[in-house]
Nucleic acid binder design. Sequence first.
RNA 1: AGAAGUCGGGGAGACAGUCGCGGGUCUCCCAACCUCCGGUUGGGAGGUUCGAGGAAAGUCCGAGCUCCACAGGGCAGGGUGCUGGUUAACGACCAGGGGGAGUGAUCCCACGGAAAGUGCCACAGAAAAGAUACCGCCGGGCAUUUCCGGCAAGGGUGAAAUGGUGAGGUAAGAGCUCACCGCGCCUCCGGUGACGGAGGUGGCAGGGUAAACCCCACCCGGAGCAAGACCAAAUAGGGGAGGAUGAGGUGGCCCGCCUCGUUCGCACUCCCGGGUAGGUCGCUCGAGGCCGUCGGCAACGCCGGUCCCAGAUACAUGACUGUCACCGUUUCGGCGGUAACAGAACUCGGCUUACGACCGGCUUCUCACG
RNA 2: UCCUCGGUAGCUCAAUGGUAGAGCAUGCGGCUGUUAACCGCAGGGUUGUAGGUUCGAGUCCUACCCGAGGAG
Length: 126
Amino acid sequence: MHKTEFQKVYEEGVKRVGRLLVVYLLTADDMARAVVASRKVGGAVRRNRAKRLLREAHRTGILARRDEVMGLRARFFPDPEPSAAADQTADRVGGGGLWVVLVARQRIVEATSREVRAELDALLTH
RNA sequence: AGAAGUCGGGGAGACAGUCGCGGGUCUCCCAACCUCCGGUUGGGAGGUUCGAGGAAAGUCCGAGCUCCACAGGGCAGGGUGCUGGUUAACGACCAGGGGGAGUGAUCCCACGGAAAGUGCCACAGAAAAGAUACCGCCGGGCAUUUCCGGCAAGGGUGAAAUGGUGAGGUAAGAGCUCACCGCGCCUCCGGUGACGGAGGUGGCAGGGUAAACCCCACCCGGAGCAAGACCAAAUAGGGGAGGAUGAGGUGGCCCGCCUCGUUCGCACUCCCGGGUAGGUCGCUCGAGGCCGUCGGCAACGCCGGUCCCAGAUACAUGACUGUCACCGUUUCGGCGGUAACAGAACUCGGCUUACGACCGGCUUCUCACG
RNA sequence: UCCUCGGUAGCUCAAUGGUAGAGCAUGCGGCUGUUAACCGCAGGGUUGUAGGUUCGAGUCCUACCCGAGGAG
């Protein structure tokens, strides 16, 4: 993912803020995932720890299951207008993917992997 | 027993399993290309193997490597600064000398030159380096205001005042003279040397500051793996090489060198590449680790054996389960934790800084007992 | 990866190696019927930290800490 693609997700995507992390979602043709840990999280050790926790939560949580992803698309991105049915079908044929950006917050370093996964799933299903 | 010094070891507790990530390698499958055998490239699956640190950090020094000219001369600038050695090199390390701290083991030191020159030394003080005399001391004139001369021992100021102590000497004093100490110079001896020792001699040579300018000796060209090399969509259209002359620019400057533009024979001759996105290489076998013999006080070196030990490019080590070990807590069922500092990005040698628990060697002092 | 600056009072900034200061802000007093403005006075500093050179360091040297900016 390039810098301009991050900007696109931040500006056009859906944002959910939790106690340990922030998640951005955006519909796309393919599946993609990125993890972000800024210098506010800490030094290189703490940033790596945060990114590993986010990857593990993404791998073991509901984002890894394809049927759940389709449900998330329907929940967070309802059809804006019925007249665009042609575009919607074309989009679905094109892959029906989802771009996900996971951003670490400072308190994630003290958390366990189960807590991170539970919060990510909760942010996506509530 | 207590206190202390010094040198080291060691670094997510160990083992097993499941899922997941990055690299190498082997096998199989698929696709494309080459005339075939077969091979190359790309993708996927499975097996196997490897996968962060002692500081990977700070970026304070030194090198390798790459390009700039083959890295050369001079100036400027910068660095180092007791001696000898180690090393690829160093501002690092080892050994020694000198100085300082400590009862001691031991520790600390930017430790060349102030009789090459220049500058500065606030306040106080008479005077801050070229001379001088505030309070004073002594002698003489005058006569009790003071004048002339001698002195720098005492007082006072200051961070620092023209060797120190004692004796002689004198009007009072003074290296004026003498003894010891300090200092300078000379000779001899020991040592590779820094330096040390002994003897002689001088009668004191004239303050501090060089992490002020500077002098002396030695060293240093610049940039950095986003260096640089190769393949090469798009886009733009030319690009490169060669002869002569003059001008301009370029590492801080001058040479030198390189580049660009102009002119002439003819705006000539020859060649077909250059390059962004992207990709490949550089990229991990190295002044390498471990073990041993030998040389050396040591740093280290020679030789032999043995091992292969991360190479990513949005950037890989994580999660969970069980058993054992240790620690904390406990209602003795259990529960919680496994630690600090901290994450490779071209690679090495150092330095500096950060750091929890644990273990070991050697040495010194004090007390007690034998 | 490499490089350059900066850190002084609550804030913004000064200070040839020689007593750390100015403006704003704060407090007190004055002026005014009252407030503001104005006038006067006062307090407030480990000069980022730790060492060193020097008689003496904000200044010079060394090592750290923090902040800002730049190049590819």
